[in-house]
Amino acid sequence: MIRGASLRGFVGLVEELGGDAEQFLERFSIPPAALTSETEVVPITSHDLMLDAVAHDLRCPDFGLRLAARQDLGILGRLALAIETSSTAGEAVECVSRFLFVHSPALSIRVEPDPWGHREVAALTYRKDPRESPYSPQATELGVALFHEVALALLGSLVGLRSVELPHQPLSPVSRYTEFFGADVRFGRPVAALRVERRALDAEFGSADAAIRRFAVRYLEVHHTDPEHLVSTRVRRALAGSVGSTQPSIAGVARLLAMHPRTLQRRLAAESTGYEAILDDVRQELALRYLGTTDLPLGQVAAMAGFSGQSGLSHAVRRWRGVSPSEMRRRLRGT
């Protein structure tokens, strides 16, 4: 999932481009109210597929960059306060790295060694977990561009920015990227990243406030649990790796996690969920992914999403989205 606030500015931009924002939101089953909510979340696969579809349908290859220019740190909600009151850029990045799961568990930001081997340079990487959602060029450009815009707003300038790296090939003329980032942009790279001089991480924030930051961090610690520490996350990943190849069972997953099935049920209940609910969610994610990103026959989609036959897929998709698998594919693919 991802917070609906990630789409702030979406409606106005789509309308400026001559599109119908409500139609796109309905097509990808995203509630319009989620865009202005501080707490509502939406499926990240639907979120990303919609960005790619809008860019294609409205012939706006730099849609992600344009949307990032309309956003600011505020889309991160309560995490924003902890970031802007940090003392240095490095401390802010550490905070984002630790708590970005509050915005979306599928996304991560890290400080890593320079992929080009320069010791004085660090890579601020931006990743989406492929186990959670397929790669999206527009969503990646939105995330990296917003990362850049926030750093620029907090520091005033990015003198130490060496280059920007993107895993895909250019969607727009290269000059559009260099104009936006004010630096060299390299494509087809292993991971999306901003390459900055390490000294830039020591840059101090004018908005630093240690007392407020401690309060903000404590709030995040108390009110949000890192999904990596949840049993439900381990169950979800176990199912995501086995659905479509073996018949899933709670006994099999419990054995994989080295616990008794009843213990697993109690642990999941304590996290306000259950095995069947997680299995249904995993099947939905897989089915929508294959319907939206491949031309596989429906029978094959059904098998890969863990259904015994195409009729099982049809019943499930109608229950999830109120339409047939073929209609769902048409909506997601725009064909």
Rank of each mutant, 00 (worst) to 15 (best):
Met1Phe: 11
Arg3His: 15
Arg3Trp: 11
Ser6Arg: 13
Arg8Tyr: 11
Gly9Asn: 06
Phe10Ser: 04
Leu13Met: 13
Val14Asn: 07
Glu16Trp: 06
Glu16Pro: 09
Glu16Arg: 11
Gly18Ala: 08
Gly18Pro: 09
Gly18Met: 10
Gly19Pro: 03
Gly19Ile: 07
Glu22Cys: 05
Phe24Pro: 04
Pro32Gly: 00
Ala34Asn: 00
Glu38Thr: 07
Thr39Leu: 11
Glu40His: 08
Glu40Val: 03
Val41Asn: 13
Val41Gln: 14
Val41Ile: 13
Pro43Arg: 11
Ile44Lys: 05
Thr45Ser: 13
Asp48Pro: 12
Leu49Glu: 02
Met50Cys: 02
Val54Leu: 02
Val54Arg: 01
Gly64Val: 03
Gly64Met: 06
Gly64Lys: 09
Leu67Ile: 09
Leu73Glu: 01
Thr85Cys: 08
Thr88Gly: 10
Ala89Asp: 03
Val93Asp: 02
Val93Ala: 03
Glu94Cys: 05
Leu100Gln: 13
Val102Lys: 01
Glu112His: 12
Asp114Gln: 05
Pro115Asp: 00
Arg119Ile: 04
Val121Glu: 00
Leu124Lys: 08
Tyr126Pro: 02
Lys128Gln: 13
Lys128Cys: 11
Asp129Trp: 09
Pro134Arg: 07
Leu142Trp: 07
Gly143Gln: 15
Val144Pro: 03
Leu146Thr: 14
Glu149Val: 06
Val150Lys: 02
Leu152Met: 12
Gly160Lys: 08
Pro170Ile: 05
Pro173His: 10
Ala183Met: 10
Gly188Trp: 05
Gly188Leu: 10
Arg189Gly: 03
Arg189Thr: 10
Pro190Gly: 00
Val196Asp: 06
Glu197Leu: 10
Glu197Ala: 06
Asp209Phe: 05
Asp209Lys: 03
Ala210Asn: 06
Ala211Pro: 02
Phe215Tyr: 12
Val217Trp: 12
Tyr219Phe: 15
Glu221His: 10
Thr225Met: 14
His229Ala: 13
Leu239Trp: 00
Ser245Glu: 08
Thr246Ser: 14
Gln247Tyr: 11
Ala254Asn: 00
Leu257Thr: 04
Leu257Gln: 07
His260Gly: 12
Pro261Cys: 08
Pro261Gly: 07
Arg262Tyr: 14
Thr263Lys: 08
Thr263Asn: 15
Leu264Pro: 12
Ala270Thr: 10
Glu271Val: 05
Thr273Glu: 00
Gly274Gln: 00
Leu279Tyr: 04
Val282Asp: 00
Val282Gly: 00
Arg283Leu: 04
Gln284His: 08
Glu285Arg: 14
Ala287Lys: 01
Leu288Lys: 10
Tyr290Val: 12
Leu291Glu: 01
Thr293Ile: 05
Leu296Ser: 07
Leu296Thr: 07
Leu298Asn: 06
Gly299Arg: 04
Gln300Gly: 09
Val301Pro: 02
Ala302Asn: 03
Met304Trp: 08
Ala305Asn: 02
Gly306Val: 12
Ala316Lys: 11
Ala316Leu: 03
Arg318Ser: 10
Arg318Tyr: 13
Trp320Thr: 07
Val323Ile: 15
Ser324Ile: 04
Glu327Asp: 13
Glu327Lys: 14
Met328Val: 12
Arg333Asp: 08
Gly334Ala: 04
